[in-house]
Design a protein around this nucleic acid. Structure first.
Lengths: 152, 152
DNA sequence: TGCAATTTCCCACAATTTCCCACAATCTCC
DNA sequence: GGAGATTGTGGGAAATTGTGGGAAATTGCA
């Protein structure tokens, strides 16, 4: 599994092309080649994976049997159906499908946030509000995290 | 885990380069190589880790599954959001990303404070006001610390 | 089949980053 | 205290990166 690190400001041009910062590009293992996968995130953002990591993710999902329940089938469908293959072009850019741009409300200023094997794409303004927490809320979140970690 | 000790005065040049004092550099284990991670601190400062220590920190976070809840995802994001890789150059300097410089209001005079596996970077003026405590306040803080440690 | 619109590929310029070198200041050892 | 070595600081130049736009190719529609 790849482990990406970094937060980057990027620009989306009018053609919907997003250039990958060289600092991030350098973190891709050679084997990745030029093919990535973009998908909708749970929040109003997009998620970028290497093709290999994406296949791992879907393999984990598919380990859960479809027979189990309609909800399982529905979740798997919804989670998977936004995924798109994208190619990195000669100028280190990817062309993000319009549908996904609209979903995450990406316009010009985009933030790439790498964490583990995922790279999230956020509209700058939305990202800032997501991260803007006051102390009270923060300690509540910490408590929640603490609980959920311990109950597994 | 690395254990750094010391407080150092450093200068930031106009290009955003911060030179690491040799006394501190000498404390890095050989294996660290030239790659470090900088991130925003909770207070108005930055935090520097070895890459290894940073990956340990995030591994703890990522032990909790993203599917669990939006709050979990948010909490993890808030923790890891500003992380960036930095390289130590031939003159023992790191280039701190502009975004982070602005966040911590670092200008010219910077204080490095090593503590455990973290090295905090503070603007000198801000650091001094942070440390400016009288005896009464200090003993009150100690009391608070004692209470909170014991209740977990 | 032809036209229009979109997509893909390619090139070029501007801005930033990285690398390198040199000098000044400090420290250490004799 | 002095000389040499090491460390800190600054800046210039080359290489790289990011950004934009144009032209060719492909697709879709009439």
């Amino acid at each position: 599994m790849t482990a990406f690190i970094g937060e980057f400001n990027c620009k989306l041009d009018e053609k919907g092309r997003l250039s990958i910062p060289s600092k991030l590009r350098a973190q891709f293992p050679e084997a990745v080649g030029n093919t990535l996968v973009v998908n909708r995130g749970f929040e109003k953002c997009l998620v970028l994976y290497t093709k290999e990591d994406w296949l791992d993710e879907t393999a984990k999902l598919n380990a859960v049997d479809d027979f189990m329940s309609p909800d399982i089938r529905r979740f798997k469908r919804i989670f998977t159906n936004g995924a798109n293959l994208v190619q990195i072009d000669g100028a280190q850019r990817i062309l993000v499908p319009k549908k996904l741009l609209e979903y995450a409300e990406l316009t010009a200023e985009v933030i790439l946030v790498a964490n583990g094997n995922k790279i999230e794409l956020w509209d700058q303004a939305i990202y800032e509000s997501e991260l803007n927490v006051d102390a009270a809320e923060m300690s509540q979140l910490a408590q929640l995290f603490h609980q959920q970690r311990n109950q597994g």
